[in-house]
């Protein structure tokens, strides 16, 4: 049914303007099933804006963002769906969604795209476990009969809640935070918060996980742990990842496919080693201010 290598996400002619500023200009790219796709570019290139468009936080000025669940054959209906004015269609187990038409919460709920934020957004006063349960809100809401069964304490709800706690426990184990399950999330050190945010996003059962600079501010050890986590999410769960990253070593190590943005325009697209040697990419990174020049040059030219 789902085959690694099928197209999962298709961004076409995406343009986002803020007043006179064109943050993303006619961007098209594809992300494939089971792959890690990296979106890179200098500061202010428009990477976060692309994420916000994909996840419904911004409504793009122009363009189409299609996402496919299950069998890739359903892509053939993309144009018909666009004409129909609907948000998405399902055919048996497969589905096709137009993300630019959906409000943010439906992108997660129906199209199953989860995201994290560049500046971490946890629920700091709630415990780690609660953070992960909030992420399972929609499933639990149905199990609690939209609160009705829950308020009378029906056993079916208790079963569903126990299952959710199990799932949360599982993810806490995987990100190595199980011993802090009952502590407030705001008390965690920075690196742990990043991993918790990823675990929380994973608890929404996504098909596509969008991570906005997950390695920012991590020390080398934490960064290595993160790489491992991301690889395992991709391999074990078959979940595709869309990754924004500044750290070239991370990008080159784990991504299958790299898209490079500069001033909102795509300047390169391909396998990591191809992108690394692309003169336009090197030029874009050399165009950045002095203090980053050395670093970027060293990283790219390796």
């Amino acid at each position: 049914m789902t085959n690694a290598g099928d197209i999962l996400l298709r961004v076409e002619h995406l343009t986002m303007r803020f007043g006179g500023l064109v943050a993303v200009d006619d961007l098209s790219f594809e992300a494939r099933q089971g792959e890690i796709t990296a979106l890179i570019g200098p500061n202010g290139a428009g990477k976060t804006t692309v994420f916000n468009c994909i996840t419904g936080f911004y409504k793009p000025s122009e363009g189409r963002i299609g996402l496919c669940h299950g069998d890739a054959a359903i892509w053939s209906e993309l144009d018909a769906l666009t004409e129909s004015g609907k948000r998405g269609i399902t055919r048996g187990d497969s589905g096709l969604y137009l993300l630019e038409r959906m409000p943010d919460y439906l992108v997660t709920q129906n199209a199953r795209v989860a995201r994290t934020f560049q500046n971490i957004r946890l629920f700091p006063g709630m415990t780690l476990l609660e953070n992960l349960l909030v992420a399972q809100h929609n499933a639990l809401m149905v199990a609690s009969g939209y609160t009705l069964f829950g308020i009378f304490g029906l056993p079916s709800y208790h079963r569903a809640e126990r299952a959710s706690v199990e799932k949360a426990r599982d993810w806490l184990n995987r990100v190595g935070l199980i011993h802090r399950a009952d502590d407030p999330a705001g008390d965690l050190p920075y690196g742990d918060q990043r991993r918790l945010e990823i675990a929380r996003a994973m608890c929404t059962d996504p098909v596509l996980l969008c991570l906005d600079e997950p390695a920012a501010g991590l020390n080398p050890r934490e960064s290595a742990l993160l790489n491992e986590l991301l690889m395992s999410i991709g391999n074990e769960h078959g979940i595709s990842i869309l990754l924004i990253e500044h750290d070239m070593s991370v990008v080159m190590e784990i991504s299958d496919h790299v898209v490079v943005l500069d001033y909102g325009i795509k300047i390169s697209d391909g396998a990591p080693e191809v992108v690394r040697n692309d003169p336009k990419v090197i030029a874009a990174y050399l165009g950045v201010p002095d203090h980053e020049l050395e670093k970027a040059g060293a990283e790219i030219g390796r």
Partner: peptide
């Protein structure tokens, strides 16, 4: 739980499909 999450961070709530 969603109420309390809303009090803590509304944008994060929306990103979780609430």
């Amino acid at each position: 739980r969603a109420w309390e999450a809303l009090r803590e961070d509304e944008i994060a709530c929306r990103s979780l499909g609430i």
